[in-house]
Amino acid sequence: MFFKRMIIGTALVGTLATSAMADNVAASDPNTLMSYFFNEGIPARLGSDDVGDPMITLRHDGEEFDVFFYGCSDNTDCQSIQFAITYSTSAPTPLEAINTWNAENFFVRAYLTDEGNSRLEFDVLTGRMGLDNADFDDVFKTWARYLEQFADYLD
């Protein structure tokens, strides 16, 4: 039963994927991201978030973080993804330090959450055509680099 559903799901995604280009990575087809992570040797699990949109949880260098999908219609056809991680620090990072991070770094956005944790996010619009696989690799490597730098920065 479970397998049957999975096969149907894959077939459906296959037809939807015609909007994106063959090897492109697009939020509109979460399996293109799952394939990218698989090819990179990164453990990834596809699930859904609390509004029913796709969500991928990754393990990378011992850290676990989520990839959220945005701009979806009826939980499919999503327009963009967001890489996100929250770091709990023993004391809240001063806002001045968060601001300096944002002034000095590209692509990512840092902020203090209401709970005083430090959160780092990176939004990428993949649109209708998606990003070429090698370009998405640049995007992901950029995120991975910032993850590491942000953790060091908070120390």
């Binding site: 619009l125 649109g127 090698a134 370009d135």
Partner: peptide, 14 residues
């Protein structure tokens, strides 16, 4: 990041 292949005009418009 537009990398080597870039974004389609429609996606860049978004």
């Amino acid at each position: 990041l537009t990398g080597a292949e870039g974004l389609s005009t429609a996606d860049f418009s978004e």
